[in-house]
Design a protein around this nucleic acid. Structure first.
Length: 595
RNA sequence: CGGGGCGUAGCUCAGCUUGGUAGAGCGCUCGGUUUGGGACCGAGAGGUCGCAGGUUCGAAUCCUGUCGCCCCGACCA
């Protein structure tokens, strides 16, 4: 049985005022209530109260990992360079990696994630398909030198993560291991009281095939995702445009070039078109009738720079995050004057006319790898064959009208570059999507054979043949989840923990100075402890009731017992932190309440 | 990396415009009075005003540089 903690000597100091460096609610309250203290930007120390909550979250995770058949291990945070050198991540992680050297000058790193060493450990110990499937996990601190940490625990440079890895030798096995982890995640987040949306995620630089994120919908979230009433959900970066059917353009009128002076922007172009070239059927031209050609520069990891033009409906902006994903690992920048100048100087290539760029000219194709310019030209998936566009004629002050895709120009391919908007149709036909903000609290990932291949993890299969193992990787941000839970469970007075996660089950407050109050409090504390609950007992003499009430509300233990003016009659008060409801209870009946 | 804000006591801040020997509230220590919503009285401890240089008889205050922190954006399995 545990021993009740007495506040008179507990390692705890609450702050009367909000810390000046905290703005996000969870950060503010966790610091103020004495759960954490900042050490450096994005790096926090854990005080007893904070550790207790963190441990409760970890216990839930451990129970569900065990239920999913995963075994717990523990790797160091400090690791040698070599495994990360082999997989290329020593370089790929760039500035995001904390690197250091030992006295001999050997390179080490503080692990941002542990795929490499888990893979090597399995390689070390296992050789046969009979050993698989295997799922192992750890709860360990991760280190990422974020360009900007924010929101206290929401994005730190040191944070606690549960990372699990699965090992199979067949694709079907990976599917099953992945599903087992995914199911465990659903149970974990449900037990944590965290609402979540499972969204399709971009596989990105991890190089895997299937990936889903668990996002908690919240305004403080950093991800934008879409969802439809019909059940589709995806991170905007993974959203795929519903491609409309091609249109039969036989009999469409020929494209025609018109003077459109002073129309470098879509807005001015639409205005000019309506004024001087009204549509035959009388409908006004809209931005969506124009094809906007955006010039971007792709910077490859080796530093080389390529110009690419993206054609998209004029009413859509380019979403830089989506473009980054589309062109990964290259970085994407808006083309600068230098890029344009270079284009103009290449002999034999017509210069693009800024503001009047288009895929077509009277002299032939202007965009595309087989065109006069040789510039790569990708279009939005909505630009299907038979769609008609107003777009730049590659002459200053002139645009071409009725330019038909598939007849007058052909792109090198399509690209998911355009912004996603509320009301866009979901790709699976489940209806229009809405946009929402979410915080990533979990990520499940089919890595495939990428790591096993580069690190040489193979086993002998039933036929005695060496096969490369296929892997999954599964993460939960433990400290981030704690912050999100705090973000969700509070009021103007302080934190309000769910019963399953509170640092203590019951907070006993002695108010008043009569000895009977303290005697009764001791008895109540013992009684509640005897029921198997942890008690935080505010036994401070000389501290006024107002301070104790305020601290209790700030700390946020769900059930508070006030021992005070009714003590002499054997009456105490039960105070529910969440509802604020207070009820008088005789001490003799208290045991029944905590049965 | 770009934009904005801020560095003065353990915490939250004032003082800076207009230079003149460092302030408040809370917290902390001691004594006393108080005890159901952040009490009161008295006595204390606690600060190289982020750092460096400059101007000046004199700098928290003015000037230059520098370091750091927070927020927004970029970035970020």
């Amino acid at each position: 049985m545990s021993v009740p903690i007495r506040m008179s000597n507990y390692f705890l100091r609450t702050l009367r005022e909000d810390p000046s460096d905290a703005e996000v609610t969870s950060h503010r309250l966790l610091v103020r209530a004495g759960y954490i203290r900042r050490q450096a930007p994005g790096i926090f120390a854990w005080l007893p109260l904070g550790l207790k909550v963190k441990a409760k979250i970890e216990t839930i995770i451990r129970e569900e990992m065990a239920a999913a058949g995963a075994f717990e291990v523990h790797f160091p945070a400090l690791l040698p360079r070599e495994p990360y050198e082999i997989t290329g991540r020593w370089d790929e992680y760039g500035d995001g990696l904390f690197r250091l050297q030992d006295r001999k000058g050997s390179d080490l790193l503080l692990a941002p994630t542990h795929e490499e060493v888990f893979t090597l450990m399995v390689k070390d110990l296992y050789n046969s398909y009979k050993d698989l499937p295997l799922s192992i996990f750890q709860i360990q601190d991760k280190y990422r030198d974020e360009a900007r940490s924010r929101g206290g625990l929401l994005r730190g440079r040191e944070f606690t993560m549960k990372d699990a890895y699965s090992f199979d030798y067949t694709d079907a096995g990976l599917d099953a291991s992945y599903q087992a982890q995914r199911d465990a995640y659903e149970r974990i987040f449900t037990r944590l009281g965290l609402e979540y949306v499972v969204v399709q995620a971009d596989a990105g630089a991890m190089g895997g095939s299937k990936s889903e994120e668990f996002l908690h919908p919240t305004a403080v979230g950093e991800d934008t995702f879409v969802r439809s009433a019909g059940g589709y959900a995806a991170n905007v970066e993974a959203f795929r445009t519903l491609v409309p059917a091609a249109i039969d353009f036989a009999g469409f009128p020929a494209a025609a070039v018109h003077d459109t002076p002073d129309t470098p922007t879509i807005q001015t172009l639409v205005h000019s078109a309506n004024a001087s070239q009204p549509r035959p059927d009388g409908r006004p031209w809209a931005a969506a009738d124009t094809l906007k050609n955006v010039v971007l520069a792709l910077v490859q990891p080796d530093g080389s720079r390529e110009i690419v033009v993206i054609g998209l409906p004029g009413d859509r902006e380019v979403d830089l995050k989506r473009v980054e994903v589309a062109f990964a690992p290259a970085e994407v920048e808006a083309a600068n004057d230098g890029d344009f100048a270079k284009l103009a100087k290449v002999p034999g290539r017509p210069a693009l006319v800024k503001g009047y760029i288009g895929p077509w000219s009277a002299d032939g194709a202007m965009l595309g790898e087989t065109s006069a310019t040789g510039i790569r030209f990708l279009v939005d998936p909505r630009v299907v064959d038979g769609t008609e566009w107003i777009t730049g004629a590659n002459e200053h002050g002139r645009h071409v009208f009725g330019l038909v895709a598939g007849r007058d120009f052909v792109a090198d391919g399509t690209v998911e570059a355009a912004e996603v908007r509320a009301g866009d149709p979901a790709p699976d036909g489940s209806g229009p999507v809405e946009l929402a903000r979410g915080m990533e609290i979990g990520h499940v990932f089919q890595l495939g054979r990428k790591y096993a291949e580069s690190l040489g993890l193979k086993v002998l299969d039933e036929n005695g043949k060496l096969v490369t193992v296929t892997m999954g990787s599964y993460g939960i941000g433990v400290t981030r989840a704690l912050a999100v839970i705090a973000e969700l469970n509070n009021d103007a007075k302080g934190l309000i923990w769910p019963k399953a996660l509170a640092p203590f089950d019951v907070h006993v407050i002695a108010t008043g100075r009569d000895e009977i109050v303290f005697e009764t409090s001791e008895a109540v504390t013992a009684l509640v402890e005897a029921s198997g609950r942890d008690v935080l007992y505010d036994d401070r003499r000389k501290v006024s009731p107002g301070v104790k009430f305020g601290d209790a509300e700030l700390i946020g233990i769900p059930t508070i017992v006030i021992v005070g003016r009714g003590a002499a009659e054997g009456i105490v008060e039960l105070w529910d932190r969440r509802s604020g409801e207070r009820t008088q209870v005789a001490v003799t009946e208290l045991a029944a309440h905590f049965a």
